[in-house]
Design a protein around this nucleic acid. Structure first.
Lengths: 208, 208, 208, 208
DNA sequence: GATGAATGAGCCTTCATTCAT
DNA sequence: TATGAATGAAGGCTCATTCAT
């Protein structure tokens, strides 16, 4: 088998940097495949053999990239979380009224819910995780939830949002958004259309 | 160690005594216990031994009331479905504007989501079920979903609801409500309070 | 439910003799039903529930007539054995040359193999029985086998049968006959036709 | 207690050592061990644990070679069938009178019945198999049976065999031979002696 | 890095049998 | 005599994980 072009000249050993990059590429492939299968048939009903088969490798090979099935699940969750955190950080840095920030978060989060790793956050059950990891997941869940509440509270304070039960309002909005992950299938409506509609549907009743 | 300290509280099976009563009572006790445990730790991670232990019986005794673990899951789901159907039928029979009907459904459904069997409908994964049963569950899910859409459509027609993307609006409302099952814990807010708040939050932006 | 005619006048308690007779009738019904089912689907794959269902009673009711499933199997075997013993006794008492006796035994045994209890002797596996019962069954098997050998030996002695390896000849004849139980289905050939043909087939080569 | 005293004799799995060899060798070892145990104590009463124990492995390891217990049973049967088919093919290719062919088949089949896989064909109950496999087994059974009938018919046609009821004659011969599997124990008579005697016993009465 | 083989733990389900009524 | 309910024991199968190569 000839070596492909992306490595060292003639040596069968690719340079360290290339090897590490290959490794990361493969790790991510495992992750993406696993995420899709977890979403498709459920975490418990997806065996590592299933995942390995789809990747054309064998089960033990997965252990080169992850220490356990649970770690794969955790990593899926973390990828989604990163996206959510990025949104929140960007929104916070951009400023604006509470309502504007809330609308931006809804927009971003709706789009996230139409993507694999976003779906993982709400479709996979954190009770599959060990105590430690579950604690971390729940911590991040609360962080996202806190952002909703914070924006609503800010909105009420700055007059852009009508007074309401902040906690329940955040749950309602979060629920509507999270649920996207449960019903979205690529098809009639694009993620952007969904996002805009949800911004409208979820905030038109909240304006001051 | 006292004999009944560990949770056999409302089990109709007294440990080794007085175990003669109505079959249906027992069947329902199995169902309620199983539902709680499924919700608490997940369907897959709940073993029939766990369920039986909590009921002070042995695993095979469960098979007097259900033919399989899966049938228990299905029965849990069906109980929740019955409640939802009752609501829809009552609302349909009582009449009123589309908006009123929608509000009534939100109210009922929010309360349902705070009860065990209601939670089962949204927290348990229908992919655990065999094809046949899953098909039935999904049929009923669509029936409930159709009610949301119907009320919205009626509201738009009778002028009580502002024109909107009916399908997405139904998903948004349904999602917010379904999600209650994922976060509700008896505590700060009563089911009725939640129901009223959700009626307000989810419909104030939809009025014509 | 009115009492049927076979008991005491007006008393709901039938006289002792009648009750005992009823009991025997029922016991035999259990036996016949069980035998047919054992033959039809195998001993292990026939559950006591199956048997009870076909009799329109419940499983524990069977225990009024038999102490265990194994005892039913044993009883089936014994019924077949009784028939075989009767044949042998009758043949011995009637006398005749060895060949005549052998032919008579073949005739009787072939017919027995077309009847339920006869089939039980060869189609049911005595390894299902406990050591004690199995020992008894095997004792009787040897007794029947011994009859074959005895008649052959007598035949050789009295000149009606050509000299041969007695033991193997008995096995060959016994095997051909026993196998009838494995293939016989009521249909093209009657038990009597089979019996006569087998007499011919199995002894025409043995004549002196 | 010595380590290898208990029967791991010909197991390719040395207890905890040197377990690297050909996959087919191991698969066949599983098969042979299972066949012996099925014959010895019956299919149902042989657990996979029993089989695994005797092979010095654990139960799930068996699943590397077979997908189910039933498949093991089926494979045992097929091995016996292959031998029978080989005989028939060879006999057909060698030609000769119907009687000669029949005698040759009796000879081969009698020897087969003294070997493990041959015994499996007649001592194991095909009702243990699923519908599909049972159908295949029965198809092959009929094929072998058809060979007996064919040779007899040919013999009658070519004058080497006296006219007779072909079907019953085939059953008689087949039964006598199959039964060998039920009584044969290595001991007083060698397989070859048995084979020769059976050729004589079963055909001397059939000559034209 | 990848694989074939093996393991240990566990779970659902079945069923003969018992017992109180 | 018959039953509904319950049990104990066991078995087949799955699967994440490990290990030697």
């Amino acid at each position: 088998m000839t070596m492909d072009a992306n490595g060292g000249a003639d040596s069968p050993w690719q340079p360290f940097e290339t090897r590490r990059r290959n490794r990361d590429v493969k790790r991510e492939a495992v992750l993406r495949t696993a995420a899709q299968m977890f979403l498709d048939r459920g975490y418990q009903k997806t065996t590592l053999n299933d995942v390995a088969d789809r990747l054309n490798i064998t089960k033990p090979a997965l252990y080169n990239y992850f220490r356990s099935k649970e770690e794969i699940l955790f990593a899926c969750w973390m990828l989604g979380k990163d996206k959510a955190y990025e949104s929140i950080e960007r929104i916070d840095s951009e400023g604006g009224s509470g309502l504007v920030k809330l609308q931006q978060l809804i927009r971003d989060y709706a789009r996230l819910m139409t993507m694999d790793f976003g779906m993982c956050m709400v479709c996979l059950d954190d009770r599959e995780l060990s105590d430690e990891w579950r604690a971390e997941v729940r911590f991040h869940k609360r962080h996202v939830d806190a952002a909703y509440r914070r924006y609503i509270t800010e909105g009420v304070a700055d007059g852009s949002v009508a007074p309401c039960d902040t906690k329940l309002a955040a749950f309602a909005i979060g629920g509507a958004l999270n649920w996207i992950g449960h019903w979205y299938k690529p098809g009639s409506r694009t993620p952007d259309e969904i996002a805009e509609q949800f911004v409208h549907l979820l905030t038109s009743g909240m304006r001051a």
